[in-house]
Design a protein around this nucleic acid. Structure first.
Lengths: 236, 236
DNA sequence: TATGTTCTGATTGTATACAAAAAACACAGG
DNA sequence: CCTGTGTTTTTTGTATACAATCAGAACATA
């Protein structure tokens, strides 16, 4: 999203607010800033070596992204995300991913699809090597889906889907650590590419729907386990 | 400006950035600020009687809403919206409106549906009286759809749909002035409520799809006419 | 102890000051 | 008349200053 801007813009000047925005965003998505954690302007400003102004503007952006919540006169904190909300997001994503794959199936060039195959293989290789870290895995997965999104030729759709996916990056750590799930992802990606290669829209739609449904189950299972650990810890 | 409000009711205090945000947003949606028009911080600050800080923060929010575009070091301007983008938005809306009506059909209480019927009637009455201004019509229409959205019980979906609809408020003036279209809207709303009343999901989906398709045609027709006038004017 | 109250420091909201870049202008030279 | 160049003005980007409000400590009182 923003990388693209930097690419297309020959001069790679970036307002500090953008730098701050990306920094905070990354920290939230990686879980370095935890849900509920307070974002205090002065300490952030000191930590990042800038004044409060760009911090505040970055917070305004994160706020609209849904990653932070503002309480007037009481500052910003990292947005909690309830399971209900997570499932709401997944429901929307399912609908829009179906739309995306339909458009992609109609619009992607053969060259695009070859590129998608490459991305799929790169992801598969990372999964094979057990030593890959979760961030790298997440990025490879992200890249795969990005190519499909680009194939829709619908900028707004791309933007919305990216934003919805983003909400879930925060749970990557929770569910990408399961080896079985990783391998399932690889099989699903492979099947999706195959369907696109022969332009079988219906099959692609079916696979994508399944892909999201599986993700729904995987994430909820991971959260169940985490919650159980939590309550066990609190009980002791 | 709003200081009085804040005085009388300390509970719903609003930061200036919110006031500025809503003011600018309304002006953009009503067409008082035209696409491409530049938003200059100092003059806006003077006009609204505040400093640049809240102006800048409001612009950050509008930027993320997609209503303004920033060019670094060159300021903000009201976002142009191409016909391509408009159609992209409508395509997404169609998908999500279908999801929304499905959920609404399953979740809305009978009381909700009665409320929807009232909103439908209010809109119909406004259409009958030919003197109603377009803003009022737009708001009544908005209110009707809002009730359906609320019925989805999916906050994120509501937020996205509102944002997508918002993009089109900017064209209200273009196409709501046609009496025939207004009456068509009334008939469609009526049919949708009827379908909800008997919980006929399939029929409701069919109607909503048609509703958006008609909107697609209506807006594009209105834009065609506007463009023709434009080119006629330029030719002379 | 519990409860309320006043003060104090911390934190956000807003305004302003200053620096840097871009745009507008003016003017010399072809 | 056009064009390039240097200068001024405007505008954005960032930092800082000040005001308003809030949270919590210290204290007093029942």
């Amino acid at each position: 999203m923003t990388q693209e801007n930097a690419m297309t813009n020959p001069e790679d000047y970036m307002p500090l607010r953008e730098v701050v925005f990306m920094t905070l965003r990354r920290q939230i998505l990686r879980g370095e800033l935890k849900p509920g954690e307070r974002l205090m302007e002065i300490s952030l400003a000191n930590k990042l070596g800038v004044s409060r102004t760009p911090i505040r503007e970055a917070i305004r952006m994160l706020e609209h992204e849904g990653l932070v919540v503002m309480v007037p006169r009481r500052g910003a904190h990292v947005a909690e995300i309830t399971r209900q909300e997570l499932n709401d997001v997944l429901e929307i994503r399912k609908t829009l991913e179906v739309l995306a794959i339909q458009r992609a199936c109609a619009n992607m060039t053969d060259r695009d699809i070859r590129q998608l195959r490459e991305a799929e293989e790169a992801f598969a290789i990372l999964v094979e090597r057990k030593d890959a870290d979760i961030t790298a895995l997440g990025e490879a997965d992200e890249h795969f889906h990005d190519i499909i999104y680009q194939g829709t030729n619908n900028r707004r759709l791309i933007q919305i889907l990216n934003n919805l996916r983003e909400q879930m990056y925060r749970f990557r750590v929770e569910y990408l650590k399961d080896i079985d799930i990783r391998q399932m992802l690889v099989r699903e990606h492979d099947a999706i590419v195959k369907a696109l290669e022969i332009r079988d829209t219906e099959e692609a739609v079916r696979l994508v729907t399944m892909h999201i449904d599986n993700q729904y189950r995987a994430i909820n299972k991971a959260l169940d386990e985490r919650d159980q650990e939590e309550s066990a810890k609190n009980a002791k």
